[in-house]
Write a protein that binds this DNA or RNA. Structure first.
Lengths: 140, 140
DNA sequence: TCGTTTTCTTGAACGAGTCAAGAATATCGG
DNA sequence: CCGATATTCTTGACTCGTTCAAGAAAACGA
């Protein structure tokens, strides 16, 4: 019997059909935190051969909609994906090289922040992006 | 003598040349919080006539670099600009219509949040985006 | 295995933003 | 006030990430 984290089982549990592109995308993102779409396409092709870029875009959307992946897109960056979902963590982004790292939620559960004046909006999530310089860029 | 907030004086003080497009862009953004580039172009053309879109892009960048404007770009939205600068306030964005509203900093001064584990990054800003539903969309 | 539905392939298209070269204009020294 | 010089604006092409559309292929329940 398959382990609970078997990719195919994960897809089926989410109500998605199991296809080679989907398995490959899922594994590629699991293996590489904060990958951009291009890198996913490369990884998937290295894994299973010819795949259209459109298929990868479709799969990324399907997996994101199903809650298996999370899409992030810091200002000035292309879309990136990560497999760490459901824990409301945040990100630090390097201003010079664009590197991204995870940052645990600073204050409690999601939404981990409460707006002081919400202008009547019903808020369901607080997304925090920290900006700065990564270790490599800082030491240069 | 001009009042302290005279647009031309503001530009000069920032070390920028005073041109009609710059004055028009500055006023357009002051009058409309969270405008996107297209709306700025429209407003500027309504104000001073023919202006190339490139000029507006250039001006927006120059004013942003000079700290006279702030650029924000919630995921899934085009670039938006606001004249409220230097107070580290944040934004609420409506998931369905994209409306943006200001939110005062929830905790102290900028950076108003401290990452629990910064992965060695030197952090200089914490940007918070609240996601939810605006009053209009909520009541529908 | 068949039929239905979903997914993938192919190839074109889109839109926000950028690049580049030359014309126009702001500012400053005289 | 005027010319010199650096900056800014115009024009028009172009890039890049992403999406659209139509048909071929594949997954999966019966």
């Amino acid at each position: 019997m398959p382990v609970p984290t078997d990719p195919a089982a994960v897809l089926r549990t989410a109500g998605l059909r199991v296809t080679r592109p989907r398995l490959a995308v899922l594994e590629a993102v699991h293996a590489r935190p904060h990958v951009d779409t291009d890198a996913v396409i490369e990884a998937v092709r290295a894994d299973i051969g010819v795949v259209s870029h459109q298929a990868v875009y479709d799969v990324l959307r399907a997996l994101t909609d199903a809650g298996l992946l999370r899409r992030i897109q810091p200002t000035g960056s292309v879309a990136r994906y990560e497999a760490r979902v459901g824990d409301n963590h945040h990100h630090v982004v390097c201003r010079s090289c664009g590197a991204v790292a995870d940052v645990d939620c600073a204050v409690g559960e999601a939404p981990c922040l409460t707006a002081s004046d919400d202008s009547g909006f019903v808020i369901d999530e607080a997304e925090v992006t920290y900006w700065g310089s990564c270790p490599a860029c800082t030491s240069r």
